[in-house]
Structure formats: C-alpha cells, structure tokens
Nucleic acid binder design. Structure first.
Length: 580
RNA sequence: GCUCCAGUAGCUCAGGGGAUAGAGCACCGGUUUCCUAAACCGGGUGUCGCAGGUUCGAAUCCUGCCUGGAGCGCCA
C-alpha cells in the first residue's frame, strides 16, 4: 500500500481526477484574470477564490464557473467578463471546448480523447488509482462503538459502528494508516447491576426463589447466559459474589459484541479499558496537572452557581468536591471531576483518555459519538486545553439517534420499536442482519447524513430487500463479473483494445468513475462518510443503462473500466459478490 | 429557560449562494433470439416549516417564530 502511494505521488504523468481538473481550471482562470488586468482590459481588484464545479445538467458541460461573482468587482457585465476570461485563457489539453451561457457561466467540456485515455491509466493503476496522497505518511485513529459491555449491540450502536468503520476505510483510501479503537468502561455502576442481575438469574436457574428487581437488566439474554452457567457448573457457583458474575457477564457480552460487529465486517484493532487509566495513575496525574495549571478548585458548588443551585446543594448536604473551571474556556458551567465521596465522575477519565490519545501522536483522531455526548465532548476539549494541549487533531462526528420504527397499520403511523436495554425490549444488530443482510444494514445506516435523525423502518428494509438500493448497487458489480466470466469462456481478451472506439455512453460512465477520487477527498476532508454511499448508487445508476445499451462483444473497453472502477463496493465495506 | 441537530415529493431522505431543486420506495404503462430483467425505457402541479432581511441571484447565509429530537446531574 505504501509503495503504491509513493508511485502515485512521485509520478507526474497522470495526475487525473475531476478534482484536479477543477484545480487546473481554477489556476487557469486566475491567470487569465491577472493577464486581463495587466493589460487593462479589466480593472485591478484582488482575484477572489474561483469555484469550479460540475454543473447540474449534462448539456452544460463537465465543469463550470459562474463569472457573475466578478461583476461587482470588475464593474462589468458578467457575460463580458466571461468572454474576457475565455479569450485570455491558455489552451488546456484536456478541454475540448468552452461555452459561455447566460447570465455568465463558463462551461468547459472535457475532450473525449482525454477521457478515453484514462481507461488505460485506470487499468494500469488498478485499486491504487484513487489512492489519495493527502494521508500519505500520516496516521489516523477512529474511535467508535465504545459501548460498555452490558448488553448486545443495538440498532443505535450500529449506526455509529457503520459510520466509524466507513470513515476508517475512507481514511485508508486517502493514504492514512488507520487504527480502529474501542473505548470501554467495565467498572461503573451499570456493570455492578449487570453482575448482580446475572447472579440472580443464575440463582433462578438453579431453582432458588429470588426476587428480581425491576431496575435490574430485564433482557432475555442474561437468562441465556445464566442457563449456560448453570449447565456448565450446576449449583457450584451459589456462593460466588456479584463480582464473579460481573466478569462472567462482561466476557460473554464482549464475545457477543465482537461477533455481531464481525457479522457486518467491522473489527477493532485496539480495546482501551478505562480502568487502565486508574491502574497506571494517569487519572490522578491528569488532575494534578490541571490543578498546577490553575484550572481546578475545591468547593461545594461551582463558582457561578445561582441562588437556586446553592440552596439545592445545601439541601443535599454535600461536602466539597473537586471542580474543573471549564467555564473559563467557554463552557456554560464548571464540571465536577471528583465527587465529594472521592470517586471521579466520567469527566476526569475522559479527559485523561483523550490526553493519552493525543500523546500517541495521531495526525487525526476521529471520534464517533452519539449526540447525547455533545456536552461531554466539549468538556473534554476544554480539559485538554487546560492541560496545555492542542485538541485540533480530534474531530468528533456526532451521530443522531436512530429510531427503529414499524408501520402501525391500525393507527396509520410509524411507531418506535423500544430499544431500552434494561427493559429488555430492543432490536439488536443481530436481529437486523438476520432479517436483512449485512450489506443492507451497512448501506442503510450509511446512506444518510449522520446529523439527521434516522427512522430505520425495520419492516420496510426486510420486505423490500429485493427492491433495495443495496442490491441495485451490488448487481452492477455482479453484471461486470458476468461479463468477465463470459469473455473468459469465449477466450475473448481486451488485448490491444482500441479505446477510440468508445462511444458517448461509455464516456458518461468514465466521467462518473473519475469522480471517485473527488468524492473520497471530500468525504475525508469534511468527515462525511455518507457521501460514498450516495456515490456508489450514482455510479451504479450510470452503469446499468449502459449495460443494456452497450454490448461488450461490440466494444472491448467497458469491462476494463468497470473492473477498475467498481472498487467502490469495497470502500463501503459491502461485499462484492460474483453472483447473486 | 439556555445550547445543538432536524423540518425539501404520499413515505424515507440527498443537496446546503448560482442555470429548469433530486434519488429511493410506493403507484401506472412498456421492454427479454445475445454478457443475470435484483435491469432498462416512459410517467412528478414540491407554499424547500412560517415571516422578514442580506444579494445581481436564497432551499442554501442572517434575525425572529413554529414543530420534532438531543443535551444542559456530585448519572453512567
């Protein structure tokens, strides 16, 4: 992989993607403006950013620049400015012709020969063609899922899992060396309750008559684990305390979580246990450093507390706690880091953890979190600043809630499928995969902006699985595979193919395929992994009509283009089946 | 009450200063001597939540409001 990056960045013969053509044109237009200013055809002004982008419609060329933005600066009619630019531009080998359209667009059409030549280039470079150089020699970490081992992966976790893994794959495609990390805590109250819950379930299994509290874990899965324990150990565990059962439960839950994630092709490289931060003393060192920097104080209530809060605290009779003066960094209030009973809140280990993360030296550390962690993420950032660290490498993708919904025919509306772990009434990732497919789950979870709430219609995805965009996309690959298989059987080869024979339909596909690099780059730079899902569908929707219209046996090149280009399936982490 | 996200076609959602606002699903009609028809071709009258504002130009930016969700614990 690194080798191919080197090839890509050192070669100077085939710098091609639509993005780079954008940049070429942007440079050329800027130069044209300066030239026109130099000989007085345009008044002098600072040349602004020149945005060149694909137009909406095919008959408007391949790339377009709206010159209207210059009208005020140049005090000229936009159409006149456009003409001036075009007249002043040096000729570019990849441009066939330039049109000017009202009210001031400059539309560039890429030369067909230039596009056709890219087919050979794409095939020669294979998977590496869109291996970007922006991450070459850099490291990135993506922390995602990070669910505590108290139960199975739910639909809600799944969204973060898919988004995080897609982000990791995109970073890899951009040249980064990526580590996938899972941060978890097995020391909190919830885990205590989990251990006690399993203990009671076990006692029930071996015939004891015990009360099972309503605020303990209600899920059937604990009963299963308990049954297994009873099978293997009889009643010999009767005297064990909750801690034993906590460990047993945790071990089982982690196995389950990893198995579920593996079923949608997600695997973490590193599991980081919060407890290790206590064991090595990092927690307290972090606190002391913040104290030395003057951002920590002891008090019964925070400095800016109003009368109501003060009275409330007094009523509860709290002893002094240790506060982080986060409001000094812009927080709306200060946060407790160590409770009056001496135990830290989550804030302190979270800060210590991210401090550790930064010290590991990643160029980028992406953090996929639910929006319920928004405030906490802010506080962590303030904490890092209080430690004198620069939190800039950390970027958080906030994932909005997923509601698993079902259509209620009687009421004529959607209703939520409950997902509370403790209530034991939830749909798991396993359920979803069983009802649909790993690819369907990944696609539907990814094909939305993370900061939109998502209604995942369980029945819809199941019922329409044959009319699903997922299969539409995969079928494009299957059809390609079919072509290759058939060609092989006929002993037909693309050797010495004459690319000039390619027609307009094929060019259309080549244009779309060449956008991949641009899509990856935008997805990486803006932390928007969902873009790749839309692109995959667009590419497939350009391919399918051509498949029908252009028969391979009349034209050798398309399968090669297709072969090289359909790598998008791998990028999304979806499987690319040879047959369906 | 304060902060953040969302409101776009019947439904689920893209787009987020530029040309005639898109896709999937659903619905209707057509297409198969030949690489898989899970496909293709045709069929869209949308107050882009509402009202102002900025601009040559606003679904997009600003302000206010309405609706839904999330956060604002010495919870984890």
């Amino acid at each position: 992989m690194l080798e191919s990056v080197a090839v890509y960045t050192t070669s100077n013969t085939r710098r091609y993607s639509l993005k780079q053509l954008n940049q070429e044109l942007e440079k050329a237009i800027s130069a044209a403006l300066l030239s026109a200013q130099a000989d007085g055809r345009l008044p002098t002004f600072d040349v602004p950013a020149i945005p060149v982008s694909p137009p909406k419609r095919a008959d408007q060329g391949d790339l377009s620049y709206p010159a209207m933005g210059l009208a005020r600066l140049a005090r000229k009619n936009p159409l006149d400015i456009a003409r001036l630019i075009v007249d002043s531009m040096n000729s570019l080998d990849f441009i066939d012709h330039i049109d000017i359209a009202p009210p001031g667009f400059i539309n560039f059409t890429i030369a067909a020969d230039y596009l056709k030549r890219q087919v050979d280039t794409i095939i020669a470079e294979g998977d590496n063609f869109f291996r970007l150089s922006i991450g070459a020699g850099k490291t990135a970490q993506v922390e995602f899922v990070s669910a505590n081992p108290s139960g199975p992966i739910t639909i809600g976790h799944t969204r973060g899992a898919v988004v995080g893994d897609a982000m990791a794959r995109l970073l890899e495609a951009a040249g980064y060396q990526v580590q996938r990390e899972y941060y978890y805590n097995n020391a909190g109250n919830q885990m205590v309750i989990l251990g006690k819950s399993l203990m009671l379930r076990y006692l029930q299994q071996i015939g004891d008559d015990v009360d099972y509290p309503a605020d303990y874990y209600q899920g059937e899965y604990l009963v299963d684990v308990a049954a297994q324990l009873a099978d293997e150990n009889g009643d010999s565990l009767r005297a064990r305390d909750w801690a034993y059962f906590k460990d047993a439960a945790e071990s089982q839950m982690f196995q389950w979580i990893n198995r579920s994630l593996a079923s949608i092709d997600i695997k973490h490289d590193e599991f980081f246990n919060e407890t290790s931060l206590f064991e090595c003393g990092r927690i307290w060192r972090t606190l002391e450093l913040m104290r030395e920097n003057g951002h920590v104080y002891e008090a019964t209530h925070w400095e800016g507390a109003d009368a109501v809060e003060v009275a409330d605290v007094a009523a509860k009779g709290y002893e002094p706690a240790t506060w982080f003066h986060s409001s000094a960094f812009g927080d709306e209030k200060d946060r407790v880091m160590v409770k009056s009973d001496g135990a830290p809140t989550y804030t302190l280990p979270d800060i210590a953890y991210h401090c550790d993360k930064l010290e590991r030296g990643f160029d980028i550390a992406v953090n996929v979190l639910g929006t319920d962690h928004f405030s906490q993420a802010q506080v962590v950032k303030y904490g890092l600043q209080a430690l004198g660290m620069d939190p800039a490498p950390i970027h958080v993708i906030f994932v909005q809630m997923v509601r698993a919904v079902r259509w209620n025919q009687a009421r004529g509306e959607y209703e939520a499928v409950k997902q509370s772990k403790r209530a034991g009434d939830f749909d798991t990732l396993d359920d979803l995969v069983e009802m649909t497919s790993a690819d369907a789950v990944r696609y539907h979870m990814l094909a939305r902006s993370p900061n939109s709430q998502l209604d995942f219609d369980v029945d819809q995805v199941v019922k329409q699985s044959n009319e699903n965009p997922v299969y539409y996309i995969q079928n494009a690959y299957v059809r390609c595979a079919g072509i290759f298989r058939e060609a092989d059987e006929r002993g037909f080869s693309d050797k010495d193919a004459d690319l000039s024979l390619l027609g307009a339909d094929e060019l259309c596909f080549i244009r779309k395929a060449l956008e991949l690099g641009n899509v990856i780059e935008q997805a990486v730079l803006n932390y928007e992994p969902h873009k790749i899902a839309f692109y995959a569908h667009e590419l497939a929707s350009v391919f399918h009509p051509i498949y029908d219209r252009v028969r391979v046996l009349h034209s050798e090149a398309p399968p090669d283009v297709a072969k090289a280009r359909l790598r998008f399936l791998q990028l999304m982490g979806m499987s690319a089946p040879e047959r369906m």
